[in-house]
Write a protein that binds this DNA or RNA. Sequence first.
DNA 1: GAATAGATTGTCT
DNA 2: GACAATCTATTCT
Length: 199
Amino acid sequence: MPRRLGRKFYRRPATQLAPDLLGKVLVHRTAEGEAAGRIVECEAYRGPEDRAAHSHAGRRTARTEAMYLDGGHAYVFLLYGMYWAFNVVCAGAGAPEAVLVRAVDPVRGEALMAQRRGLPAGRRELTNGPGKLSEALGITKAQYGMDLCGDALFLEDGPAPPRIARSPRINVDYAGNHARRRWRFYEPGNRYVSVPPRD
DNA sequence: GAATAGATTGTCT
DNA sequence: GACAATCTATTCT
C-alpha cells in the first residue's frame, strides 16, 4: 500500500513543495467511488509578495481564507465563472502559499472520471487542465478548506518523474515581474501536461 | 495543428 | 460593472 502523505510534507514554501508534488497521487473518495491521478503539472503561488497570487499584499477575504490554513488543506476557487481549480495549501498556518494542480494522469477510477467529464476513457482531455481535473475528480466548492490529512481527499506517495522541467506560469501575464518567474513545474513528455514543453 | 470567440458567475473596485 | 490561475466548439490552414 502506498504511503499517505502527512502534515509535515506540506509545511514548506510553495516553490519547494511544487516540484515534489510531481508524481504524487491525488485521491478523492466519494459516494460514487474513488478517483485518483498522478500529478504531472503544477504551479507555485507564493504569499503576499507574489503579484499573481490571490493572497497578494496579504489580501484575506472569504475567498482566500483557506490559503491561510496550515499546510495540507485544500484551496478551491471558481475560475471564469464556471470551472473549479484545486490547490494544495502549503507552508504553515497564516502563510498564504499554495500550489495549483494543473494536470494529473489517471491511475484509478478512470471510468468514473470519464463519466463525470462526459467523455470516453483514455482521452487526454479527461484531466489535462485545472478545470478538467477538478471535474474528473469531483472537486467543487464542497471541498473548500478540506483537510488533506483526512480520509476523503488526500495525497499518496508515488513514483517520482524521471525528469522535472520548469517554465513560467500560465495565464498570469497581468502579474508584472512575477509573470516571468519560472514557478510552473511539469513532467516533460507526459501526455497529460496541459501545454506542451516550450521554454 | 493553430487561432478565435463565446460561455458564465463570484468577487472586488 | 469589470474581470478572472479556463474550456469547448468552430473555423480556418
